[in-house]
Design a protein around this nucleic acid. Structure first.
Length: 348
DNA sequence: AAATCGGGGTA
DNA sequence: TACCCAGATTT
C-alpha cells in the first residue's frame, strides 16, 4: 500500500468531526484556515463558530468595521490575521464579485494567504492538486523519511514542499491533505507519538533509528526581550476612564489599552509621577496607587511584559470618558481584558 | 535569512 | 520551563 493510501485509510478511521469539515464553501474554508494559522484546532473552534454565525458570507464580513472584527477576534492572538482577513473580505467582495480565486496562484495573492493557506483552500475547497505543508506535515515527513534538514530553513522549506508534492495522490486530494495533517496532529504527535500502533511503523526511518524525539529538526531563535509597561488607569468620580488605540508597528496594532508609559526598567511611584503627563485626564489627580504590588508578567512569543497598573483618581470628570460598560465594546489584548475583569470585581 | 507577531496547551 | 500549534509578513 502506498504512503497516501495508508494516510487515507487512517483518516477514514480516525477523522474528527470539525465544524468546517462538511462544506467546500471557499469563504468558510478560508476563514477556518486563517484562524488555524499557528493555532490549535481546539482553540480555534469557538472563534470559527462565532464568526460564521455573525458573518455567514464574505459580504457580511466586508461591511463590518475593523474594530468589530478585532473585538470578535479578541483573545485569539496574532491580530494581523484579523486585519488582513478583513482587508481580503472587502477585496473579494468589492473587486472580485464576492468570489474567491479558485487556484493557488490566485489565492496566494490575497493578503494573509501564504503558501500553506493557498494550497489548503485550493485543494480543500476546489479540489486542486496542491500539497499542504503545515507543522504537522513537516513532522510526519521528517520522521517517516528520516530527514534532518531544518524545517524552518530555506532548503528545508523547499525540500519538504517537493517531497509532499511527490507523495500526494491524484485523487481524493481533499481528504488526503486533511488526513495528513490530522495524522500529524493525532497519531504522529510532537511528544509521545503512538508509534506502537501506527500504520507506518514498519517503514518509519525515525522509529527504526530512534530519532523520533529529535525530528523534525528546527533552527531556533532564543531572543526574548523584557519590557516594562506602566498602565495609567484614570478613574473619575463616575468611574469613567480612558482608552487609547495602539498605532504604528509592533504588538497589538489597532487594539485598545489604557494610557501607557513604557520604561527601560521597573518604576517606583515617585519615578512614575515624574514621567506622568500633566494634562488631562491627569491634570487634577487626587490619588495614584499601584493596583498590583507585584508585576504581572504577560508572556508573548518574543517578549515578556512586566506590567503594573496604576489607578489614577481624578477629582474632575474625564472629558470623553469611557464608562465601565463601554469598556466591553473595545478590542483589547488579553492582558488588558484580564485587568478589566479584576478591576470590575474590586472597584465598580 | 532572521525577526516579529499571541495566547494557550502539553510534557 | 521548553516546545508547539492546520504560518504570514516584514526587516
Amino acid at each position: 500500500m502506498s504512503f497516501s493510501e495508508k494516510i487515507l485509510n487512517w483518516y477514514v478511521q480516525n477523522k474528527r468531526q470539525l465544524p468546517w469539515r462538511n462544506t467546500t464553501d471557499p469563504y468558510k474554508i478560508w476563514l477556518s484556515e486563517i484562524m488555524l494559522q499557528q493555532t490549535r484546532v481546539a482553540q480555534g473552534i469557538p472563534y470559527y463558530e462565532k464568526f460564521v454565525k455573525k458573518y455567514p458570507t464574505v459580504q457580511d464580513m466586508a461591511v463590518a468595521s475593523e474594530q468589530e472584527i478585532l473585538k470578535l477576534w479578541q483573545g485569539l492572538g496574532y491580530y494581523s490575521r484579523a486585519r488582513n482577513m478583513h482587508h481580503t473580505a472587502r477585496k473579494v467582495t468589492e473587486e472580485m464579485d464576492g468570489k474567491f480565486p479558485q487556484t493557488y496562484e490566485g489565492l496566494i495573492k490575497l493578503k494573509g494567504v501564504g503558501d500553506y493557506t493557498a494550497s489548503a483552500i485550493a485543494s480543500i475547497s476546489f479540489g486542486q492538486l496542491e500539497p499542504v505543508v503545515d507543522g504537522n506535515v513537516y513532522r510526519v515527513l521528517a520522521r517517516y523519511f528520516g530527514v534532518d534538514t531544518p524545517i524552518n530553513s530555506g532548503p528545508g522549506i523547499k525540500y519538504f514542499k517537493n517531497l509532499a508534492r511527490e507523495l500526494m495522490p491524484d485523487e481524493n486530494i481533499r481528504d488526503y491533505n486533511q488526513g495528513l495533517m490530522e495524522f500529524g496532529a493525532i497519531q504522529c504527535a510532537p511528544k509521545k507519538p503512538y508509534c506502537l500502533h501506527c500504520p507506518l511503523n514498519d517503514s518509519c526511518v525515525a522509529l527504526q533509528k530512534n530519532l523520533i524525539a529529535s525530528l523534525p529538526a528546527k533552527l531556533k531563535n532564543n531572543s526574548i526581550k523584557k519590557r516594562y509597561f506602566n498602565y495609567l488607569v484614570p478613574l473619575d468620580p463616575k468611574s469613567n476612564t480612558r482608552l487609547h488605540k495602539r498605532e504604528g508597528k509592533g504588538i497589538w496594532q489597532n487594539l485598545y489599552e489604557f494610557p501607557l508609559i513604557e520604561s527601560p526598567k521597573e518604576l517606583n511611584i515617585n519615578e512614575l509621577k515624574e514621567l506622568m503627563p500633566k494634562e488631562a485626564p491627569f491634570a487634577d489627580l487626587t490619588e495614584v496607587i499601584a493596583f498590583n504590588a507585584d508585576n504581572i508578567v504577560h508572556k508573548l512569543s518574543h517578549q515578556h511584559l512586566y506590567t503594573r497598573f496604576w489607578i489614577c483618581r481624578t477629582s474632575s470628570e474625564i472629558a470623553d470618558g469611557i464608562t465601565p460598560a463601554e469598556l466591553e465594546d473595545y478590542p483589547v489584548p488579553v492582558l488588558i481584558a484580564d485587568f478589566i475583569k479584576t478591576l470590575k470585581i474590586s472597584y465598580f
